[in-house]
Design a binder for these strands. Structure first.
Length: 458
RNA sequence: GGCCCCAUCGUCUAGCGGUCUAGGACGUCGCCCUUUCACGGCGAAAACACGGGUUCGAUUCCCGUUGGGGUCACCA
């Protein structure tokens, strides 16, 4: 059993394609088959090395590995042309000398008469050679009678009348193969048995099958996965915002969160929501993939991401946060992580929450924090005095000392904790106040408090 | 428009003729916890698109309607 994922290098790895790749990969892994990767780089203008690297990088980040090296479709062009000529020899294809202008005229005419356009090339059944010096394409002699059916692993049995199929181009007038020919030849040569791809290719399957049959090759099994839609139900596109796997990476999404989210989008396994890669391989099969397109929900991705951040190793998170903060990895960051990570839905929020640890005095105080500080300078003085005499700078001792200070001042703990938080972090939200004090240390804590005990710009 | 496909809470889904007064998750709304924000706990509102069949019995099977999507290149 062999599957293949065949993205084209468009400059980014589309989230929908990534999911298709994931399904293709999982299907192979679940059944103990081979998962191959083929880059469809026949569009030379777009297929830069950089664009290819983006795809490779995105897949690797998601944790998808492939059996054998990546194939590049462009390498097989001579073979594609060879098959096109074999098709002519077999009487299954023909040279067509219709010019693009003639084609367009016919199409326009059909459109004007409001009837469907189906090419009937007069060259299909001519045996004589065409005119000299006129460029020609090679077209497939598509079947015209009967119907073609495929038993799709996701869509079920789908059939179409052969009258709907046209004599599409296999080889362009410049000798280059079309996508329709290239995929079929490559899939055959790579011995692909299961083609898992987006259902925007469903209609192509009938045409491709015609080539397979004309060559007498074994027929592959198809599985057409529904596309991902935006929140409004339309095909996911630029106006919906982030499209590429890299965009989500930059937003601070963990790869395992995206993996889990994409897996559950269009597929389910009972009531299971949190699914590891190992479990996915054990459970995944195509028969539970839904037939209808599913909408992308950022909120659910975020919630999954928050879960995986909480599960993640502190040292790993510290490293990722340090990168985002452009500081060097530190022991302090690792120590702060248990408190920090419970509050973040993505890596950027996590980094933002860690900022106060590395801020230099005097701190920048945000507006709500400043408002809080305004009427609490006396209280801060009391806290400073109490904290100054604490000898064991740990969570429990601090808890005791701050509560005692609040009691002595005749206020509730919150009344004192909030100004303290503002002074220590410059914000009104942060980890627990005692944890903040511990992380900052006695010297830095006292200094930050003292900074706020006097009116600013006095 | 032709052809093809699809249709369970707002969203992702479970359900594969009776177990459904339809389950879970995200989101939403309450309450609890609480020094803030989160986390966590408890609870609530929220769906089988509609109309015909088939059947003793339909969310589950069939047909139609409506709605949605995909595709119609010498792009991939």
């Amino acid at each position: 059993m062999v599957t293949r994922f065949a993205p084209s290098p468009t400059g980014f790895l589309h989230i929908g394609n990534a999911r298709t790749g994931l399904f293709s990969w999982l299907y192979a892994r679940h059944h103990g088959g081979k998962a191959l990767l083929r880059i469809e780089d026949t569009d030379k203008a777009r297929s830069t090395q950089e664009a290819i690297d983006v795809i490779l990088d995105g897949l690797q980040w998601l944790g998808l590995d492939w059996d054998g090296p990546a194939y590049f479709q462009s390498q097989f062009e001579p073979r594609h042309a060879e098959v096109a000529h074999q098709l002519i020899e077999r009487g299954a294809a023909y040279r067509c000398f219709l010019t693009p202008e003639e084609l367009k005229a016919r199409r326009d005419k059909a459109q004007a008469e409001r009837r469907p356009f189906r090419l009937q090339s007069e060259w299909r059944d001519r045996s004589e050679a065409g005119p000299d010096g006129v460029p020609s394409v090679i077209r497939l002699k598509a079947p015209r009678e009967g119907e073609t059916a495929i038993d799709d692993l996701v869509q079920g049995r789908v059939s179409v009348s052969n009258a709907e199929l046209d004599d599409f181009v296999l080889l362009r007038s410049d000798g280059s193969p079309t996508y329709m020919l290239a995929v079929v030849v490559d899939d055959h040569d790579m011995a692909v048995t299961h083609i898992v791809r987006g259902d925007d290719h469903l209609n192509n399957a009938f045409r491709q099958l015609a080539i397979v049959r004309a060559m007498g090759w074994p027929e592959p099994t198809y599985a057409h996965i529904p596309l991902i839609h935006g929140p409004d139900g339309a095909k996911l596109s630029k106006r919906h915002g982030a499209l590429g796997v890299h965009d989500y990476r930059e937003m601070g999404i963990l790869p395992e969160a995206l993996f889990n989210y994409l897996l559950r989008l269009g597929w389910g396994h009972g009531d299971d929501e949190i699914i590891s890669a190992e479990q996915a391989i054990a459970w995944f099969d195509l028969d539970h993939v839904g037939k209808s397109p599913s909408r992308f929900d950022m909120k659910k991705l975020e919630s999954l991401n928050a879960h995986y951040i909480r599960e993640a190793d502190d040292a790993r998170l510290a490293k990722l946060v340090a990168e985002r903060l452009e500081i060097s990895d530190s022991e302090l960051l690792v120590r702060a992580m248990p408190e920090l990570k419970a509050r973040a839905h993505d890596l950027n929020q996590l980094a933002d929450g860690a900022r106060f640890l590395f801020a230099t005095r005097p701190l920048t105080i945000d507006e709500p924090a400043a408002a809080l500080l305004k009427d609490s300078r006396a209280l801060l003085g009391a806290a400073h005095a109490a904290l100054g005499s604490v000898s064991a700078w740990d969570h429990d001792a601090l808890d005791e000392a701050v509560r005692a200070a609040a009691d002595a001042a005749g206020v509730k703990l919150g009344k004192l904790a909030q100004p303290l938080r503002a002074a220590l972090t410059g914000r009104t939200t942060s980890p627990g106040i005692f944890d903040v004090l511990v992380l900052l240390g006695q010297g830095e804590s006292l200094a930050r408090i003292a900074d706020q005990m006097v009116e600013p710009n006095a």
